[in-house]
Design a protein around this nucleic acid. Structure first.
Lengths: 185, 185
DNA sequence: GTCTATAGCTCGATAGAC
DNA sequence: GTCTATCGAGCTATAGAC
């Protein structure tokens, strides 16, 4: 792996752990084992590097989600597979986390990939729910776009509860709750 | 209002907007209209001030929730009143926001009030759901603790989606989704 | 109680040698 | 492509006058 990739990966980790405001070029360089000149040779600055890092994390998140949602079974089965897949819950979501960063939401360029990623995730979940509705698994009146937003919100909010408690249990409870509600539909 | 209170209020605002890592003593002083000597006279430092600010925000959050949950009606009515109350959605949750801050979750003293607040909120919602279950509004088999976690997670995650989109709609969708699921129980 | 001055450090970025 | 040196600013905190 080249120095450029090392820098991107270090930035991804630090953005996940500490956010944009809490991540310094110096910390990125140290984690990547690269010097200052090297970083500013490959990237225009902190923002440029963050953009590359966020885009890579976003692509990975969507690919991982797709792997779970592509499984056979009913819509609720597929969503269960997605929600129950192994997660490092206490680390939170590498993309959702960025929405709490004032400099990310204030900058259209930095916010765009975050918005697009969560938007696509919701759209994909709505698609799965649509298929379930067409198959008669869900009521014809179900608002699949709203349910998709609820599911993604449970994930993102589950991370918040788990991190507050420093334990994964509240995340698991929140997921169990929404799955029991979906199963009862 | 005294200087001490001004400092606490400014810290509350800045923690909400920028988090702990993104908030400097200097910014607090400027917003409060107080000098450095004044701040360090009233508080031992940034952490001490943050503790006072978080405790005050936590008390306010729980009091506001209680005002909505105390209303008459079924459990779902009361939870609807809570979820649908007027919110500045794009600002997010002043307490949940702190779970994304590495220095808050790493410090037991700073994390404690966050954990306690979200824990109490979940417990209070579970209580409301328990009352509804006893009244026959919910199935006897409903896992009220899990549903309470789901409801708080939808709120916290709804903020995440709204901030990503820079629009309140995803929050409203997520709330609509979970309320429709609860109504169908 | 509040002020100014200052400490020692890190911030994000640039310069210029090699 | 990577290095070291340096910039001007801001960081959290302390000192000591008033």
């Amino acid at each position: 792996m080249g120095t450029r990739d090392q820098l991107i990966d270090s930035t991804r980790e630090l953005l996940w752990e500490r956010g944009y405001v809490g991540t310094s070029p110096k910390a990125i360089q140290q984690r990547a084992g690269a010097g200052q000149g090297s970083m500013y040779h490959h990237f225009a600055g902190k923002k440029d590097l963050a953009l590359a890092a966020v885009r890579r994390s976003a692509a990975e998140l969507l690919a991982t989600a797709e792997a779970q949602l592509r499984t056979p079974g009913t819509a609720v089965d597929r969503i269960t597979a997605y929600l129950r897949r192994e997660r490092e819950v206490l680390r939170g979501c590498p993309i959702g986390r960025l929405t709490q960063d004032p400099e990310i939401v204030a900058d259209p360029e930095l916010r765009a990939p975050v918005d697009e990623t969560l938007g696509r995730l919701r759209a994909r979940l709505a698609e799965v729910l649509d298929e379930g509705r067409s198959a008669g698994e869900l009521p014809a009146t179900a608002d699949t776009a709203a349910l998709a937003a609820t599911i993604v919100a449970v994930l993102q909010g589950g991370y918040v509860l788990a991190r507050a408690a420093a334990a994964p249990e509240p995340f698991d409870q929140a997921v169990s709750g929404v799955l029991s509600l979906l199963a009862a539909l």
